[in-house]
């Protein structure tokens, strides 16, 4: 029986988005063998947004409370999870910046294998079988993990599924641990409220923008989507200093799987394509009709981005207003 522990992410006493999706992935492993799914929340006190976890698939909701969890505390979280893992076949986290930081720490503490950025999870006999992009998405690796495994599931890989579980609350004790890393806080960047890796819509700009100031066009289009879009960039423009590296999509940047990816003035170098080819829908806007980006785009518009993008922004605003 494969029981699964889903370690959820909390920031400022608010549950981070993606918890329901992670529980859906957890259920996929557990349900194959009649196992259960427990959610774990490490926090200082009550956490808002945690009410619906039973409905989203948690049989139990474990809370580990400690003053140290005011900020992300990888040492405390890894130590807490390590006390629980005997009961589980798999520990799942979301493959966010935090989840990817935490997963290998847990794995090393409990002597388990760790699979990062997983897009498919399955239970397979005594193993967990996962599929994960390697070579930055240029290939997919199918891996069997024996024994207890730690799996970081890529955001967007699973959609939330109503499961109607009890979500029974339970309290777990935070063991004694050494706080080796002291996270002092998060400086919210004024610009990118939403990260390209977690946005439903990503609008990326490349050299075709001609000048860094023209990113404003993309910001406007993103704003038209009403807080669910983030602005990304190709490596060429990040290297040229037009955009911050955190916005870079591609092999040496972020790999994204949004529902909608709009590539503006991006020719489509192989490294860039590797970072966004798993988007559900790809739209390309480029003046060069032979640009490689059109080969993988679902919909393309050939033309001057300075005309097309404002027109699209206006159209999205209208659509969103309805």
């Amino acid at each position: 029986m494969a029981n699964v522990l889903a370690v959820l992410e909390v920031r400022n006493a608010v549950l981070r988005k993606g918890a329901a999706e992670l529980l859906a992935a957890a259920r996929r492993i557990a349900d194959a063998s009649g196992g259960t799914v427990d959610a774990l929340i490490c926090s200082v006190g009550p956490v808002s947004g945690s009410d619906g976890l039973g409905a989203a698939g948690a049989d139990r909701v474990l809370t580990a409370q400690h003053a140290v969890f005011a900020n992300y505390c990888p040492d405390g979280m890894a130590a807490t999870v390590a006390t629980l893992t005997n009961a589980y076949r798999a520990v799942v986290v979301a493959a966010t910046a935090t989840g990817k930081d935490l997963a290998p720490r847990i794995a090393a503490r409990i002597g388990a294998p760790c699979a990062m950025d997983v897009t498919v999870v399955d239970s397979r006999g005594e193993s967990i079988r996962v599929v994960r992009p390697v070579y930055a998405g240029k290939a997919l690796q199918t891996v069997d993990l024996a024994g207890t495994a730690v799996v970081a599931v890529r955001p967007g890989a699973y959609a939330a599924v109503p499961a109607g579980k009890a979500g029974t609350p339970a309290v777990v004790t935070v063991p004694a641990f050494t706080k080796r890393l002291d996270v002092t806080g998060i400086r919210t960047s004024d610009k990118a409220a939403l990260d390209v890796a977690e946005a439903r819509v990503v609008i990326s700009g490349g050299r075709g923008l001609g000048d860094p100031k023209h990113f404003a066009l993309l910001e406007e289009l993103a704003a038209a989507f009403g807080g669910e879009a983030a602005v990304g960039a190709s490596r060429a423009v990040v290297d040229a200093g037009w955009a911050e590296h955190g916005a870079q999509v591609g092999q040496t940047g972020k790999t994204v799987s949004p529902e909608l990816y709009i590539a503006v003035g991006i020719s489509g170098a192989i490294q860039h394509l590797a970072g966004m080819r798993t988007a559900k829908v790809i739209v390309a806007i480029n003046r060069d009709k032979d640009a490689p980006i059109f080969k993988i785009a679902d919909y393309g518009i050939v033309g001057d981005l300075f005309e097309v993008v404002p027109a699209l922004t206006a159209a999205v605003r209208v659509a969103k207003a309805h």
């Binding site: 290939a139 069997d144 993990l145 080969k295 919909y299 393309g300 033309g303 097309v308």
Partner: peptide
């Protein structure tokens, strides 16, 4: 505890289409 069962190229995306040219599209 890790066995690589398979390595494969990602499925090709189905060919898309050019919707049109310029803002008119």
């Amino acid at each position: 505890s890790v066995t690589v069962a398979a390595l494969a190229l990602p499925p090709e995306r189905a060919a898309g289409r050019i919707v049109g040219e310029g803002a008119a599209a």
